[in-house]
Design a binder for these strands. Structure first.
Lengths: 199, 199
DNA sequence: TTGATTGTTCTCTAAAAGTTCTCTACTCTA
DNA sequence: TAGAGTAGAGAACTTTTAGAGAACAATCAA
């Protein structure tokens, strides 16, 4: 349990970091709290650290960090587990964080927004984002961004026929696969991820 | 985490490159920052480079480059535009970066992996991740994580009937909505996003 | 090729910050 | 009222940082 002054100091440190992007010095804390002695401030900071409210980087100035700071700028979400109809939420063993950056972001990837319903059967809807890894070849079954005749871009499942013709298959039972001569099709990337944002 | 002076130097370099089309020399940075020693400026530039804010071309003068934005915040992806069957990729005006962290990550959110096909009609498939914002109430039409009788968790569309009963609607034409007395249902959060990772 | 300019590495120094310690004043309790 | 405990002041010390500047290497242009 924090004392009243410890609480005030923690508040001040929070505000300072929010405003300056880095921790305050002991002297600055002292000035704000009207404590003239660095030593006293140091004792408070140590108390807050031992109580787990702060993290303190030894060595170096402005080494005060908020204990939960890592959650602030990161792309990780706590992972609650699996959910299924008729069962309680089930934990996923050996994994308790989902890191979006690690999962989706890489040098040679980019995002596209999907228009239309041509991939609706595999859960890619109008307005969804897809994450594409740039490359110029694909394997059968990959979902690719293909440029046809150097002008029409499209997201389709890729298949190479025995005779070398290229089949681009929409994942929508209402639409039909299209077949092209290989020189008409240029692969621009393959699908690595899909995401959707609900308002 | 950049210190205040590192921040100022980065700003100056940005401005200089914008204005002159090439990076400044160490002496020019020093003059702008009122630092007389090249060595000191060099140390700052190295610090900025190691922190990923700058790229430094060895060999040659004025070898300072701004780092790729995508490397700086590894949660952003370049945005190529919209893709639709039968049309070239169309640029999205006023937006050229997609920030996953900003879009999906927040304090009171967590991720769940979906099992089963009960939401397949709105593109949420078996194995997908959903991002849930914790809250204990919902509006009609929201998709919620609901705990039934304190034991079964489920992802369904929420509807409150005029008589106070709660309807949980699966988005799968093969499944039927279920109706519960309000005291049997506890809302654990509402759906904010969905994502899928292709191997 | 040459010389001026620029970048790199190093040491030195002073200032600033962190750490540890003691001393004193105050409050609380028996 | 005496002793224990607590909080602030501040001195003494160590560590870290920032700037200066020297020495040297690399680069570019004439």
């Amino acid at each position: 349990m924090l004392t009243q002054l410890e609480q005030r100091i923690l508040e001040f440190i929070r505000g300072y970091i929010a405003q300056h992007g880095q921790g305050p010095t002991l002297t600055e804390i002292g000035a704000a709290m009207e404590i003239k002695s660095k030593g006293t401030v140091h004792r408070y900071v140590q108390a807050l650290t031992s109580k787990g409210a702060l993290e303190h980087v030894e060595r170096g100035w402005r080494g005060i960090r908020l204990a939960n700071e890592s959650q602030l700028h990161s792309t990780t979400l706590p992972l609650a587990g699996r959910i299924a109809a008729g069962h309680p939420i089930e934990a996923i063993p050996g994994q308790d964080q989902l890191d979006l950056g690690e999962l989706f972001v890489s040098d040679n990837r980019f995002a596209l927004q999907v228009k239309g319903d041509s991939m609706i059967d595999i859960g890619i809807l109008d307005g969804d984002w897809v994450i594409i890894e740039q490359c110029h070849t694909a394997h059968d079954g990959d979902i690719v961004v293909a440029l046809i005749d150097e002008q029409d871009a499209t997201l389709k499942r890729f298949k190479c026929l025995p005779d070398g013709q290229i089949l681009l298959i929409p994942e929508n039972t209402d639409l039909s696969p299209m077949q092209y001569a290989p020189e008409r099709v240029r692969i621009q990337g393959v699908l690595m991820g899909q995401l959707r944002h609900y308002a």
